[in-house]
């Protein structure tokens, strides 16, 4: 058994048993997010965070943190081009697309009347 590295970065000590070719891993964002988003105690604050937003966010993170392979199996791959979740540009695109589609729908519906 070989202990690799000592305490690393911010998240307390972390030891690896058995020598591996891995670089020593810093306390990773996935570790922190899985705890602060999902495990800390829930007390309603005065600011209400839209639960749907949180759920969507959690789903996105989950797709990356937990079950990418599963999501792929299910054919969910919209995040493929967007691995770092910097989704704003994509959201904007979708919003625009959504607006265009709604406008078209209105046109079509008004044409039918």
């Amino acid at each position: 058994m070989t202990e690799q590295g000592g305490p690393l970065v911010t998240s307390g000590s972390r030891q690896q048993y058995q020598l591996s070719s891995d670089r020593p891993q810093p306390a990773n964002l996935a570790d922190i997010l899985e705890r602060v988003l999902d495990k800390g105690i829930v007390i309603a604050g005065d600011i209400k965070v839209n639960l749907l937003d949180i759920e969507l966010l959690t789903i996105k993170i989950r797709l990356l943190v937990a079950s990418v392979d599963k999501a792929k199996e299910m054919g969910i791959d919209w995040w493929e081009n967007d691995p770092m979740l910097s989704s704003r540009s994509r959201d904007q695109e979708l919003e625009e697309e959504n607006r265009d589609l709604k406008a078209r729908l209105r046109e079509l519906e008004s044409g039918r009347e």
């Binding site: 307390g12 972390r14 690896q16 602060v36 105690i41």
Partner: peptide, 22 residues
């Protein structure tokens, strides 16, 4: 870890008790 040579174990902590202070 020594009993299971094909598995690599990584221990981290102590964390603030996020999971258990519910």
């Amino acid at each position: 870890a020594s009993e299971h040579p094909r598995v690599r174990l990584e221990v981290g902590g102590p964390w603030p008790p996020y999971t258990f202070a519910s």
